[in-house]
Design a binder for these strands. Sequence first.
DNA 1: AACACGGTCAACCGCTCCCTC
DNA 2: TGAGGGAGCGGTTGACCGTGT
Length: 266
Amino acid sequence: MSWEVMAAEQLVWGVMEEGWRKGPWTAEEDRLLIEYVKLHGEGRWNSVARLAGLKRNGKSCRLRWVNYLRPDLKRGQITPHEEKVILELHARWGNRWSTIARSLPGRTDNEIKNYWRTHFKKKAKVSSDNSEKSKARLLRRQQFQQQQLLQQQQQQQQQQQTQVFDMRRLMSLLDENENRVPTLPQMKQDASAAATTIFPNTIDDHHQVFLYSVFNNSAALPEATNHDQDINWDGLWNMDEFSGNIYYSNSANRATLRTSAATPYY
DNA sequence: AACACGGTCAACCGCTCCCTC
DNA sequence: TGAGGGAGCGGTTGACCGTGT
């Protein structure tokens, strides 16, 4: 083949980079890929170029097969029922498109992702804009209430000057491994260590009860799983900037998330 | 008719996870 | 046990197309 022909082919067929073709697939490429999968099955995508004579890298081949050529793909518009499922599962799992796709036979993660972005992202933005306004109103109300609360607490603090309660230091000790999801025994150990470090002589009954209740909340949780890595635990601890109080939250959400993620959608 | 604009979707990219050696 | 490769995932890009002006 002359260089002129090769150059012309590249212009017509797409970009060549390091020997791999990129861009839209041709009918001939599709045919070669289908034949390859018929003969060798799915997988070993990096062998496709060698065995099927395709000038595509493995990733490109896999994507083309999974998103376009697979015989079990459902063509056509997303049905209202599928849309309902997508909304429901996205509310549950967020952008885990492949997980959502597993509950919608014949639909690909890419298809669902695109559908979401084009159909719902804008709606979500509009509703979030509205919720921002109500959030601002709520914030103003909360600030007023917090000011009043602060005044009350200042009065109480004057009565309790003997108790120095450095919760920030406690937080830094407990969160030494940021975003790590400790096992229950680890959490109890951490609590004990933190308590004795911060309050070597002075931890009183009140704070012991507090720490114990923190870890009792977590006792309702199932053992940590790999899935925990996918959950953002940043919101696990909340600190009230004004009063210095901390409270444990999301334990119920965490349990719900974990069980729901393990349950297939029907 | 021509242009601008927005929606759609196939394909690519970069990252992470997992398996094998 | 760690390195390397394969596979999968989510985010992003860009081409194409329809519609409005």
